[in-house]
Design a protein around this nucleic acid. Structure first.
Length: 454
DNA sequence: ATGTCC
């Protein structure tokens, strides 16, 4: 190990399940060339491909530091968008079943299944990969205001579609505006509790307000980009003298042709992810308009699977770093220069989705975060999908959740069972640990009213 | 996460 490993967690939140090798992964990441300060992990840490999910690793780009696709994850720019409707839960209540039916009928989800926007060909795909959510808005899918509250204002300018392979583009062509499967969802929620009134007000969150949380990423396109670039890096890393304890950490120097190509393709996939969430926003608007006569505005959109070139002080000296966040959310404090989309000068919103039937949180970035301005991204799995399927039946789970007043519109019974809340850590404990470690400050707690499940 | 193996 070149640096220590730091896991921000209580004992209860540490990986304990047999077969969860996430802590070994924290140690393996600490061997990467150019890594600085520490190999970090958030309280929702669990086992992932190469890097742990919940992992944060920063490498010094001017000291041979590497970039690794495994440090971003297969679902590039997987993230969360929070919307707020101009209605309260008590007002919406009589119309909620119909709203859920319309959302269930119009939100594409599950494996394959198509998307809301069928692109005309590679030329239009390249426009979308270069323009992200901004391109979607230019084509009429949303309003310019949406972009003001989207991380990077909806587009990473250093994306290059020519680094995205043909197969990735083909897989993505029919999936713009779709949820996917696994832990992805679209949830109607209500603000249940506010912890920080001034910041909550700046974010537009008042008790009782109806919100919609969208959790999805870059679908088959991001998956194929990751696959393609892992293969390249697996081939070349030895040529750069890089010795790895695990092939899944395949990487190349940030300042190498392969490293730069990955970052350009990753940015293009990230733009696809933001456009995807933008299209789903429009479906939500149509559903709220027709069933409740309510309007919907964007609170914030942020990804938790990304690598970013950022400046941080290391041993008192500002360094240009490649910060990998995999299942970890950037959490910048108020007034940070990398935050052009900051709502009302309050700091970066950190959107933390829980699981079906449990709460979700909005936190905010703060000063004094020594994990490269990062926070948790969700609850974190404790049961494998296989374990969940052995113990839970989807039909039973839906009945249980509906009995507690939460409407469920599943894609498949199997997918629902895999996502049982019991398969996850307690999101309230994860957020407590995140706040206790000084990584972010709680702003509001949201509770589910209805779930459209991927 | 993922046309759950080209």
């Amino acid at each position: 190990m070149r640096v220590p490993g730091i896991v921000y967690a209580t004992a209860d939140l540490l990986p304990q399940a047999s077969g969860d090798r996430a802590l070994e992964q924290v140690a393996a990441v600490a061997t990467l060339p150019g890594i600085v300060r520490a190999s970090c992990a958030m309280p929702d840490i669990h086992w992932g491909y190469g890097f742990p999910i919940g992992g944060v690793a920063a490498t010094d780009t001017e000291a041979g530091g590497v970039v690794s696709p495994g440090g971003v994850g297969f679902d590039i720019s997987c993230g969360v968008r929070l919307l707020a409707a101009d209605t309260d839960r008590d007002v919406l209540a009589p119309r909620l079943p119909r709203l859920m039916d319309v959302l269930g009928d119009t939100v594409p989800r599950g494996m394959g299944r198509g998307g809301l926007w069928r692109l005309s060909g590679r030329r239009e795909m390249d426009e979308l990969l270069a323009g992200g959510a901004r391109y979607a808005v230019e084509r009429g899918h949303g309003t310019p205001r949406d972009l003001e509250f989207c991380e990077d204002r909806g587009v990473l300018e250093d994306a290059d579609p020519s680094d995205v392979g043909e197969r990735a583009a083909e897989r993505g062509a029919r999936q713009v505006g779709s949820l996917g499967s696994g832990n992805h969802f679209l949830e109607v929620q209500a603000v249940e509790r506010v912890y920080d009134a001034p910041v909550a007000e700046a974010f537009g969150l008042r008790p009782g307000r109806v919100c919609v949380m969208i959790h999805t990423g870059s679908r088959g396109l991001g998956h194929q980009v990751c696959t393609d670039h892992v293969r390249v890096m697996d081939r070349v890393s030895a040529h750069y003298g890089i010795d790895l304890p695990d092939r899944q950490l395949a990487c190349a120097p940030v300042d190498s042709p392969e490293g730069r190509a990955y970052l350009r393709a990753m940015a293009a996939a990230a733009n696809y992810g933001r456009a995807n969430r933008q299209l789903l926003t429009e479906a939500v608007r149509r559903a709220f308009d027709t069933t409740a006569g309510a309007e919907v505005e964007l609170v914030y959109d942020i990804s938790h699977n990304m690598a970013k070139l950022e400046t941080h002080e290391v041993d008192g000296v500002p360094r240009r770093l490649c910060v990998h966040r995999k299942g970890a959310t950037r959490a910048l404090p108020a007034g940070h220069p990398d935050l052009p989309e900051e709502p009302a000068g309050a700091g970066q919103p950190v959107l933390v989705p829980g699981t079906m039937g449990t709460a979700s949180y909005v936190l905010v970035g703060k000063e004094g975060n020594d994990a490269f301005h990062s926070a948790c991204h969700g609850a974190g799995r404790v049961w494998s999908r296989h374990q969940a399927l052995r113990r839970v039946r989807g039909e039973q789970l839906r009945g249980d959740l509906e009995a507690t007043g939460i409407a469920i519109r599943p894609a498949t019974w199997r997918g629902l069972a895999e996502e049982t809340p019991q398969a996850y850590k307690d999101v309230d404990a994860v957020v407590d640990a995140t706040a206790g470690a000084g990584l972010a400050r709680p702003v509001a707690r949201l509770v589910p009213l209805g779930v459209v499940k991927g």
